[in-house]
């Protein structure tokens, strides 16, 4: 009998730890960031234009990073610290929900499913899904995808989107964009689907071997995510985004990061 009780007791205590611990996500995020004078952001490291690790100095650089810094400045003042925790598409929401970070700014599309478990700020970038293919590919648009293999990213919503627009396509999900592009180049799939801005960045990195095709086939703006029941912090972020957009800083950042991208009409992205 003793032999049985121990394992069960242990299993239960493990369950308690994972299930109902009093977590950091219950405390007031705004108070926390004010008292530490730091906002910890989950960002990505493999998205050119939005957030890419610069090999020269090991810093993340891109539109998302600049937005995060600007928002941090708006909320905490010029001395406020923006700390960045690298996430993958898969880990960005768990990092927020489990309390590893205060907010997520990582090309995160606002979707109803996600909005059920996290709170989104007002949209800060108008994105939509498109396709990236090898130059010699016969895929011209989403209509050619049936029967083909499409590469997505774990934790991205591309899997669900492709199931809707091309039900007969097979989707394989890779861990991150580096992996996904390598897989595309190794012909593990016929197309890679993701948001237009990201794909233009990947195409620009590919030295001409990959291209974006078929325009956008969805409308999926990005939002900044914070935990639910954090109304003060949520409002503070919305106010900050608003201010950055109205002051013209937003358009400057858009031009800075997307002004040089071939084939991309960055002026459409401007805040008007």
């Amino acid at each position: 009998m003793k032999k049985i009780i121990w394992p069960i007791a242990l299993l239960f205590s493990a369950l308690m730890l994972t299930g109902c611990g009093k977590s950091v996500t219950d405390q007031s995020a705004l108070k926390n960031v004010r008292s530490s004078n730091t906002i910890t952001w989950a960002v990505e490291g493999d998205k050119k234009l939005f957030s890419l690790i610069d090999i020269r100095d090991d810093q993340e650089k891109g539109f998302d990073i600049d937005m995060a810094k600007a928002i941090t400045r708006e909320i905490l003042g010029p001395k406020g610290q923006a700390r960045f925790t690298l996430a993958t598409s898969q880990s960005r929401i768990p990092l927020l929900k489990n309390g590893n970070v205060d907010a997520v700014i990582a090309t995160l599309t606002i979707t109803p499913e996600r909005a059920k478990i996290i709170s989104f700020s007002k949209p800060y970038f108008r994105a939509g899904k498109s396709l990236l293919v090898n130059k010699d590919s016969d895929v011209k648009s989403v209509r050619d995808l049936n029967g083909k293999t499409v590469i997505g990213i774990v934790g991205d919503n591309s899997v669900e989107v492709i199931k809707k627009v091309a039900p007969k396509a097979k989707v394989v999900a890779m861990q991150d964009y580096g992996q996904a592009v390598s897989a595309l180049k190794s012909h593990q799939g016929d197309a890679l689907t993701s948001d237009n801005g990201i794909l233009y960045g990947l195409a620009a990195q590919s030295a001409g071997s990959l291209e974006v095709r078929g325009g956008t086939f969805t409308k999926e703006p990005y939002g900044i995510a914070v935990n639910q029941n954090q109304e003060p912090f949520h409002r503070a972020i919305n106010r900050a985004v608003d201010k950055i957009q109205r002051s013209g800083e937003y358009n400057r950042l858009i031009k800075k990061w997307f002004g040089q991208v071939p084939g991309f009409n960055y002026k459409e992205m401007y805040y008007k």
Binding site: G45, D46, K48, I55, D58, Y177, V181, K185, Q205, A207
Partner: peptide, 23 residues
């Protein structure tokens, strides 16, 4: 590398992620 620890494997992935020819 799965939780993006900046160790050897992850850094190699960053490099070949930015230029697939370097894989």
């Amino acid at each position: 590398t799965i939780i993006v620890v900046p160790e050897l494997m992850q850094h190699a992935q960053v490099i070949y992620g930015q230029n697939a020819n370097y894989i």
